[in-house]
Structure formats: C-alpha cells, structure tokens
Design a protein around this nucleic acid. Structure first.
Length: 285
DNA sequence: ACCCAGGCGACGA
DNA sequence: TCGTCGCATGGG
C-alpha cells in the first residue's frame, strides 16, 4: 500500500486489502453514506471527508497531509498488513470463504465514545434505523462544523440534556441508556482513556457498569472504539454462524485476530444467510 | 396482522 | 444462576 500526496488529495495505491463498500457497509460504522457506487462521505472526529474509489485507487478528497497522518491513516488502520492476516485464516475453509467474499474489509479504529454510544443504540435494532438515530443524535446534539455537517455529540452535551430530549431522535427505550453512558463518561466515573490498555476483563466489566451495556455492546465498543482486536462480539449472526459453521468452535488460526475474523464472518453470514444454511428462524439462545 | 432487528434489564423460580 | 418477557420504532 502506497500513499501519494497530490495537492489536497491523498491517493492510496495497492488497494487489494481495502474496498470502501466492504469496509463502510459491513455493519461496523454508522456515519458513512454512499453518494454513488464508488463515492462515500462521512464525519470522523470533527473532520468531514469524501472518498472515491476508482481504477484500483482510493482517493481521500480535499484533506491534508496532517489530517491523513494524524487521523485517517489510523482510522482506516492503514499500517496493518491485512494480506498476512487473511493468509493466516486460509487453513480454515469457512474463514477462507469469508475473506474471499469481501476481501476489502478493514476493521476501523473509530472514536471510543462514538463506538460505545452507537453500539448501545444498535441493540435490538437494524442497521438502517441505527444510522438514522445516530444521524438525528448528531444533528440535535453535535457541534455544527464549518462545512455544515455535524460532529458526533460529546458525552457532556448529552449529559446536559434529558432522557426526553434524547428520545426525540426515535431511539426509544435506549434513551435512558445513552443518558446513563453520557453521565458516567462526562463525570469520569468511567474513564474511557483507560480502556485502550486496561486488562481486557477489567475493560469489559467497567463498560458493563453502564445501564444498557451488556457483554455484546461492551465487546463491540472495545473492538471498534478502543482497538481491542482480541474482542469477539457475538451477536445473533455470529451465534448462528458458530452453531452451523463452527460447531467445534473457532479454528486456532483465528485466535491472533479474533476481532478481524469476527468482522469477516459477520458480514458473510449476514449478507448471504441462505447459502450458508443460516436460517433467520434458527434459534441461538 | 405478525415478526424481526449486531441485546439488555427486570423478574420469578 | 438461569429462562422468559417486555421494550420503542420502523420495515418486510
């Protein structure tokens, strides 16, 4: 993978391990929208970005070398060698199929608070509604940026609001959970900075002190928001896949990259359940 | 009308 | 400790 700085654009060459649709539409993030089949736009950390994919290149439009080095390179985890990781999965047939199905998936390194809040919203919900609620939350409580887009709301902005106000975003019963998370984070009762390096069990326990955060939401927040690649969120799709495709448990070759394996399996299972025998009526609890 | 959605908390046994 | 049920809202 090579990076070329062309005026205000960043051109990424060698994109066999990076596809916008695979990465941004695989269910891990909620603030990216496709304008057409090869253009996406989104906001991360108060920065708005348009990205184009064409001719085996990915172009970050109208940004800067500073933002690329300080934000985007880390956000898209461009320093990690996915070729080697995917190769390590090849000894298992199902993992091989899942990496071949969407070879351009990369697990994003999202902001911690945004990931935590977004995955609280994700519970008993679907992707379209999650994105709609997150969008409404940003527009109501987030800082308006010069470009006209909105940043993800700070914990303090939500803690200074009320459950009733938060409910206007149509998040339903999750409003009280969002509020509790915002209060605990804003007051530093829970210090998110510790979660990057704390022992993983301690990090899980800490997050589950928040109302509405159980094992699954905590696991997602840690994986997507705090780069804890040893996490393996088990939602209904992963549970179905485990039952049918991995009845004897995950193969050992997945152990060093559980979070990445999970994302490939999740996307494969959710996108083509029939071909894999993953009937939606399959009970997993 | 009914069921489901990247679950979780409350409650009863 | 473990199973069951309700939960807000919208789409199929």
């Amino acid at each position: 993978m090579q990076f070329i700085f062309d005026n205000c654009d960043i051109i990424i060459q060698g994109t066999e391990d990076f596809s916008l649709s695979d990465t941004l539409d695989c269910g891990q993030c909620f603030r990216w929208y496709s304008l057409d089949s090869n253009t996406y736009t989104g906001v991360v950390a108060k920065k708005h970005l348009t990205i184009i994919e064409k001719d085996n290149r990915i172009i970050l439009k109208n940004t800067s070398k500073t933002d690329f080095e300080n934000l985007w390179k880390n956000y898209f985890d461009l320093g990690t060698d996915y070729t080697t990781i995917k190769k390590s999965f090849d000894s298992n047939e199902i993992l091989l199929q899942s990496t071949h199905f969407a070879p351009g998936i990369r697990v994003l390194r999202q902001e911690g608070w945004e990931a935590l809040c977004s995955f609280i919203i994700s519970q008993n919900n679907n992707l379209k509604r999650i994105k709609g609620i997150v969008k409404a939350l940003c527009e109501k409580f987030g800082e308006k940026l010069p470009c006209g887009e909105y940043a993800f709301p700070s914990p303090l902005a939500l803690a200074n609001s009320t459950i009733e106000e938060i409910q206007t975003t149509k998040c339903g019963f999750r409003a009280k959970y969002i509020y509790d998370a915002a209060c605990k984070v804003a007051t530093k009762e829970i210090n998110l900075k510790n979660l990057y390096t704390a022992p993983i069990e301690e990090a899980r326990t800490t997050l589950q002190q928040i109302k509405g955060v159980g094992p699954k939401v905590a696991e997602c927040a840690l994986l997507y928001g705090f780069a804890r690649m040893e996490c393996f969120p088990q939602d209904v799709w992963i549970k179905r896949a485990m039952k049918i495709l991995f009845p004897n448990g995950l193969p050992q070759c997945a152990n060093n990259h559980l979070g990445i394996a999970q994302q490939f399996i999740f996307h494969y299972a959710r996108t083509c359940p029939e071909a894999l025998g993953l009937d939606k009526k399959l009970k997993v609890n």
